[in-house]
Design a binder for these strands. Sequence first.
DNA 1: TTGTATGCGTTATCAC
DNA 2: GTGATAACGCATACAA
Lengths: 340, 340
Amino acid sequence: MIDRKPDNSRLPTLADVASRVGVSTATVSRCLNEPDRVIGATRERVMAAVRELGYSPNFGARALAARRTNTVGAVIPTMENAIFARGLQAFQEELGENGITLLVASSSYRADLEEEQIRTLAARGADGMLLIGYDRDPAIYSFLKRQGIPVVIAWAHDPRAGVASVGFDNYRAMKALAHAVISRGHSSLGIVSARQAGNDRARERVRGIVDAAAQAGLGSDRVHIVETSYGIDEGAQAFEALMSRENRPSAVMCGNDVLAVGAIGRARELGLDVPLDVSVTGFDDMELAKLSFPPLTTIHVPHRRMGQEAARLLMSTAKTGSENSNILLETEIRLRGSLA
Amino acid sequence: MIDRKPDNSRLPTLADVASRVGVSTATVSRCLNEPDRVIGATRERVMAAVRELGYSPNFGARALAARRTNTVGAVIPTMENAIFARGLQAFQEELGENGITLLVASSSYRADLEEEQIRTLAARGADGMLLIGYDRDPAIYSFLKRQGIPVVIAWAHDPRAGVASVGFDNYRAMKALAHAVISRGHSSLGIVSARQAGNDRARERVRGIVDAAAQAGLGSDRVHIVETSYGIDEGAQAFEALMSRENRPSAVMCGNDVLAVGAIGRARELGLDVPLDVSVTGFDDMELAKLSFPPLTTIHVPHRRMGQEAARLLMSTAKTGSENSNILLETEIRLRGSLA
DNA sequence: TTGTATGCGTTATCAC
DNA sequence: GTGATAACGCATACAA
């Protein structure tokens, strides 16, 4: 526990500013919140005093009295890599322009931690919340509803879910990529996926590949799936596991770019040429993808756009109370050197 | 602005729990904060009511009354890449074990935004704060001191600064790497640095290279510096700028791994072989480094250790009020394929 | 062990 | 346009 260092000189409060200027606390409060409603002359004097004293309003007290925090929370699976960084940055920027602060927490892809973080953010008075994907205990949704906290789901799209969302069709995107891979003659596919349990995005992506394979007449024995957690090393290991099977896939499709880059690295270590010996694909089109050698064939996701729209949606959802706005963004295949 | 959806069923408060159980609010409060001080039987009934009502304490009110938030803030330059992610993760874990929540904000490497974030975190009642590097307006330090908020600086080490810190010697680390580069016969160096103004880490690193070059008898005309902002594309452009000068450096030392990876990528696009045509080095030893092709020669920084120590230091600094604990961590050169 | 009462710093309602 | 003053939800010193 952290105890504040005993501080003899108490922090300046609204009352301090007020008494110094010789006005009431109400006036000072107004100067800060609705400057128009106070006459120019007094406002100047108040603001001067604010600066001199280094006054800064107490957030907790303000939230308590105003029953609003101008804060929204976001719980993302991880901060360890840049997957969510760009989208979140855009989200934050859009909120910032509207005077709203963003609080970010990460769940490490664990449902229990996510729930804890959500409750923490709610207790901190978040006026709204951004969550990634749909999969979670329904109790969480009803908790949020009881609290009157509007929610927006990002990175996924399911109009039937009854929650506002902005995202893309993970299934369709990955299926299209799988078609592209198969049409190049690959008849044995490897899949490196994040754990599918509790992760609708991962599940939809795998389903996309499996369906594409089935439609192309590839038996289920031609599709090998390995689940792992997101991470470069994990991708590398999963890739190696796939390559050491009896009938090696000629193309390995990864659930995201981080896994794919790990796979490519391991291929090099194993003396396998990408894409001559084995093709590799990713998902996300992070900066990493263009930079990898060979550059990564992947699905481009409009992360910035998604973050921005999520912010707008959250603000309007909060205003109107409508819970069923769903924005579908288009993804795009980016063909690069890792696929032959 | 976000207005909470008008919620007819007010959230349960301490008083609701109390009246339902038939005890005083004080007892309920104690059940939550010091369970030992209340007898088993009543505690059970209280906790049951808490669950039934879905009660969750109001953070603002609690902070207001207790004058403590069990929250610490961290302002990092960027979340866009993983430079600070690992250290921060460890920082958070260590804090979490002690029941403390971490609030993260990013400054985009801008001094004005950093100051704003610091004030915001202070207003939110942060009991302590983690900042990166020393360089900032002295007014900020005195503001924090007035607020009684203990500070720990990370990613840098300067015992004379009079602030608690845990970090490494950026100057010495980079100087050692420069020696390694020069000893391999490179007599013309390029430097791709972050902007040095307001960034002591960047400045120290450049100074390390420059001093090493001088000690090796390389004139200042043999050291070319380009400043840019951190980013893969930025690294690529800076690298290209260096390579298009009349006397091309044979080795380009970058201020961090992100820049270096960008440089290597651009080298490939320009048809330059790394390391045959030009050597490239980084700083940080992110996951990226091993994965780059060729793998990156860089400085290994014990990020996790740094985050963990920072958390401990912050907690003990808060307890003891001692402001001048400085922990120096050792870095290590990692020689890999990008340097010949 | 439990209850009472006060105060935390701000906003908002209502007078003036 | 400005000033009193009552909430806001909780923790805590003190009393019982």
